[in-house]
Design a protein around this nucleic acid. Structure first.
Length: 722
DNA sequence: ATGTACAAGATTTTT
DNA sequence: TCTTGTACAT
């Protein structure tokens, strides 16, 4: 279930004549590589669904010959719904539709032996992964405080995003991040030993399978005659390599994306992929969708004016023939409480004018900002829904129960084993666990096997031994029971026998009743499944965000990142202050692209709105309990004045007047670059300088033509390392 | 092995 | 402010 059901009403029948000329071209141009540069609100989803339906209806391919990659499972789920609506139930089922990870997993499961994995390998989730890293971190005895487990993991993940297995990490980085590199090697070794992969590995393993076994690669290349990719601006290098490999045979690949909406650079996404498309796929056709059907003239104008401040763009000019509508409201407040209070008033007012609560969304930069709004809306009695918080299956109690189930099915899943071995407490502490880990590593076996061995060798005494013995026996019993009993009954039995239910029932924690409630919900969900295996495979997809409030009319609160791809009649954008938005980390970052990414985020935020947009800032804000002062965001000054209306609380300094650049760091000038100099740009490649103006350079690029770019992005050609 | 007391550290998020 | 992790006592 998705928290925001797609609005399908307008797409009842498959009728190409409802599309505009560019959209139609993007649907019908099915052969050869195609890049659709689709701006915000230009009907991107519509094009994709129509294209899918078109291919099937024209019998150009069977469903299973189509590979369609989406950004989230939710997106895949909704896409399926839409296609079914257009052409009926049956055909859409066969389409290979899902995220890169889900699709790669499907392939790796079938050929796991090629990369040295047993068929039942575990896929680590973030929680297990971090525990795992922390354990290695301890073994490594890292003294440098800078390299926390999280920091090291981040580094490793970025390597994986770039398709770099330990052998492929360039030597310069090996020495620069010596510790991380050694860590990476140990991490990979131990993963294989535990018969597990992390999310990044799914793609890397898949690539390795293709590299090692040409027949397998050929088979999939042959199979997928049409490939469609949504949100192409958010693909990383590994994903790009994967796509390129699969598309080689038929070369019918259609990527849809918007470089202005690339907001996942910090997660390894490479906008370069979208910019290089024409180089990578020969004879590529590029179609631009520039007519916006979503927003009013003023909203689109404000957003376009803002994003025009970015230099790293392919450049699109969005237009709309919709009415001008209301101007974007920019409002300034003393502090964040005032901001929340005023927002409540605006909500009430909009309600009077006929908007329902579910038409509105509050978009924030950081998730801690949601709290203040939650509190305020609660006291006002407005129902709200926080989108994208902790997902159902990520809750501790659910993960515990699932770990028990996993253990019954795959006793050698050491991650599940570790999770529940002492939950509820059965007298097995750190030292015992330590011994088990050591033995498992030494013997190259699972924790389950290590436990068996430990019991046989008589190294343990007393309580630890007896409880380990009975734990193993219980698992074996459950396995027997599982053969004959429905899984819900099995699960109830486990929860009763282990005392897990009682543990929460006796707990005095205020959230204990809620947790029991969640477990009950899980039990109900179990009923619909024939066997445990299918349930575990689908649990993350099925139980996605089953948040309550689905039926009640409620305001949506979410981060800007989770608002991607959604739209609302009314959007509130809160916390436009220097240090929060753009975020401090982006300001500190020397790479100017991180500031541009913040600006793209702002652009995404504004373009979510159909009719009304409110942008607010506060001079004082409580962050983690401490009051902090800040100045209005630089983005406010970048909004074109004719599209906005500024109201500021008495005595506050409005963000518009005058002081351009007073707090913006002094930009470097284009010194050192002379006209006619041969230069290099990360994305546009080589070119010659035409004209220098302060920090801006006008450059004629060999392949991309004349562009204005910030000098910070430019290197002298002779400095470029080849 | 487990409970308590205090310090530290805390974007954005999907798989 | 609040969660999480570590040191120490029981």
């Amino acid at each position: 279930m998705s928290p925001l059901p797609p609005d399908l009403s307008s797409e009842d029948t498959f009728d190409l004549s409802t599309l505009n000329i560019d959209q139609r071209k993007a649907v019908e141009c099915v052969y050869g590589p195609l890049l659709v540069l689709a701006g915000a609100g230009t009907g991107k989803t519509r094009v994709l669904t129509y294209r899918l339906s078109h291919i099937i209806q024209q019998n150009l391919a069977c469903p299973h010959q189509i590979l369609c990659v989406t950004f989230t499972n939710k997106a895949a789920f909704e896409m399926r719904l839409r296609v079914e609506k257009l052409i009926g139930q049956g055909p859409s089922q066969g389409i290979w539709m899902g995220t890169f990870h889900a699709l790669a997993l499907k392939i790796v499961r079938r050929h796991s032996e090629i990369v040295g994995l047993a068929p039942k390998f575990t896929v680590l989730d973030t929680d297990d992964q971090l525990r795992f890293v922390k354990r290695i971190h301890k073994d490594f005895q890292v003294t440098d405080k800078k390299w926390t487990p999280k920091a090291i993991l981040h580094r490793i993940e970025r390597w994986k995003d770039r398709g770099l297995t330990p052998e492929k990490v360039p030597e310069s980085e090996q020495t620069k991040y010596d510790l991380c590199y050694k860590f990476y090697k140990a991490y990979q070794e131990r993963l294989i030993q535990s018969n597990a992969v992390d999310f990044g590995d799914l793609l890397l393993s898949c690539l390795e399978i293709f590299r090692k076994d040409a027949d397998v690669l050929k088979k999939y290349q042959q199979q997928f005659s049409f490939i469609l990719v949504d949100e192409y601006q958010d693909t990383n290098v590994a994903q790009y390599l994967w796509l390129r490999l699969l598309a080689q045979k038929h070369n019918n690949i259609c990527c849809v994306g918007d470089d202005d909406q690339s907001i996942y650079g910090w997660r390894g996404a490479e906008v370069t992929n979208i910019l290089k498309f024409e180089d990578d796929f020969s004879d590529a056709v590029v179609i631009r969708l520039e007519q916006n059907y979503r927003s009013t003239h003023h909203i689109l104008g404000a957003a376009s004016g803002l994003i025009a401040h970015n230099y790293e763009r392919l450049g699109k000019t969005l237009w709309t023939d919709q009415k001008a509508g209301e101007k974007v409201c920019v409002k300034g407040y003393w502090d964040s409480q005032e901001e929340a209070r005023a927002l409540g008033e605006d909500v009430a007012q909009l309600q009077n004018v006929g908007y329902s609560l579910s038409d509105m969304a509050i978009l924030v930069r950081a998730s801690y900002q949601t709290r203040e709004f939650e509190e305020r809306l609660m006291t006002l009695g407005f129902p709200y829904r926080v989108v994208g918080g902790l997902r159902f299956y990520e809750r501790m109690e659910i993960r515990d129960v699932l770990a028990y189930l996993r253990l019954v099915l795959f006793p050698h899943d050491s991650f599940a084993f570790e999770r529940v071995i002492n939950t509820p407490k059965r007298g097995i502490g750190n030292s015992t666990l330590q011994t088990l880990h050591q033995l498992a590593r030494f013997e190259q076996c699972s924790l389950f096997q290590a436990t068996q061995k430990l019991i046989d060798t008589d190294e343990l005494r007393g309580k630890a031994k007896t409880s380990l013995e009975s734990f193993l026996r219980s698992i074996q019993q459950w396995q027997e029971v599982a053969k004959t009993t429905p899984i819900r009954t099995l699960c109830e039995l486990i929860l009763k026998e282990t005392g897990y239910f009682d543990m929460w029932r006796n707990s005095k924690m205020p959230d204990a009743p809620g947790r029991i409630e969640n477990i009950r919900e899980l039990l109900t969900a179990l009923e619909g499944f024939e066997n445990l295996e299918t349930f575990l495979e689908h649990v993350s997809l099925v139980m996605d965000n089953t948040a309550q409030g689905f039926h009640t009319d409620s305001i949506n609160i979410m981060t800007l990142h989770s608002a991607k791809g959604l739209e609302f009649n009314v959007v509130f954008l809160s916390g436009w202050e220097e240090g929060l938005f753009p975020h401090m980390r982006a300001l500190e970052d020397l790479n100017p692209d991180s500031l541009e990414e913040e600006r793209r985020l702002a652009y995404v935020g504004i373009t979510r709105a159909r009719e009304r947009a409110f942008i607010t800032y506060a001079t004082r804000r409580r962050i983690h309990g401490v009051w902090k002062s800040s100045v209005p965001s630089r983005f406010l000054k970048e909004l074109p004045r004719n599209h906005i209306e500024v109201t500021v609380q008495g005595g506050l300094y409005p963000p518009m007047e005058g002081d351009q650049g007073s707090q913006a760091p002094q930009k470097k000038n284009g010194e050192g670059f002379l006209p006619n100099a041969r230069v290099f740009h990360q994305k546009f490649g080589y070119g010659y300088v035409i004209y220098v103006e302060h920090d801006r350079l006008e450059i004629h690029f060999d392949h991309s033509g004349v562009k204005k770019v910030l000098s910070a992005f430019i290197k002298k050609a002779e400095d470029v390392v080849r």
